[in-house]
Design a protein around this nucleic acid. Sequence first.
DNA 1: TATGACATGTAATCTGTTACATGATTAG
DNA 2: CTAATCATGTAACAGATTACATGTCATA
Lengths: 188, 188
Amino acid sequence: MKRRNIPALGYALMGLLQQKPASGYDLRKTFSSTSLRSYSDSPGAIYPALSRLEKQDLIRGQIEEGKGLRRRQIFRLTPKGLAELKNWVVSPVTRDDLIWNLGQVLLRFAFSEQAVGPAASIELLKSVQHALREHLPALQHELKLMKPVATISGRLAFESGIRQYECLLAWTRHAISTFEKERKEGSS
Amino acid sequence: MKRRNIPALGYALMGLLQQKPASGYDLRKTFSSTSLRSYSDSPGAIYPALSRLEKQDLIRGQIEEGKGLRRRQIFRLTPKGLAELKNWVVSPVTRDDLIWNLGQVLLRFAFSEQAVGPAASIELLKSVQHALREHLPALQHELKLMKPVATISGRLAFESGIRQYECLLAWTRHAISTFEKERKEGSS
DNA sequence: TATGACATGTAATCTGTTACATGATTAG
DNA sequence: CTAATCATGTAACAGATTACATGTCATA
């Protein structure tokens, strides 16, 4: 049995369904009205994605009876789906994740608190910090090497990438301290 | 005649070819050894993309004769291709570009200096600033609205997006001043 | 009765990924 | 002779976009 990997859209859908069961139409509306819209809000993407998840037994849809209007199908996470979601959220962040899937990492973080708990959120942030502290020096080194060769705009574009990562690192510190402050206030 | 739009990979290829004619293999190596690797470095993407560009008369390949080894095809930009590239580079940056195609905007900037000239680079930076100054307040407003509803991690993830844009804005200022400094030094 | 919002889906097309195939040349 | 590297490609498949199709209900 081949383990097909789920695309980002699938996880985004599962994350939303974990928060609250919903129909395809609901999900689509949520997508287009929030910053999740980057994961596509077209029916041609969402409905097939839902079918795939259902085929993999990660979500289950149940047709809403009566209630006027056309039949709607309400989807909810299965236990297997919840396990898969949690697994995705807590898996450690690699350098490749920073380079190619930063958006997904942020998505994982956004869902982490509800799906797994605040401790997992902090773990994830620390994992991001770890990956960044490996990645940033390598980038800075690359910048030094390219300095004589490239154009000014080429160099500046590269620098912009470095700055984004530095900014992300600063954010992780802010985020960790926010969580820890909250924890103290919660326990007082 | 339908105007098919060129995917990011196509522009990345054209940008490199503008700097220097090259074979598919050369391009692939450049891709995988630089931060362009995010635009795919697999032959199954690059060779078909090159054929498409050639069919559209944006690049032209010419087979290198003799020289041992297997035949290689050296591609170079056509005048039409150069015009298309320039057009892509200088087109104004929209809010949607910030949200969905930030990577492409940076790519455009990286190529801008060689393909069009430093004045275009500065224009592009100003266009980014303009889009950011429209976009950032809207995001900050959205954050206020979501504050009571969302989880901490959800809110923090959103804040991270805002910070990335703020960081980008700071970078544009840095980049513009770098260009202007260079111009003074160049003319002295 | 017509239109528009709700709600779900399909079909054509495009592009990318993975994995493989092909061939020539050089190094051990 | 074998493996590695150079160099180019193809085939099968997955997933996304666009555009369209379908059907129900409310309201004007």
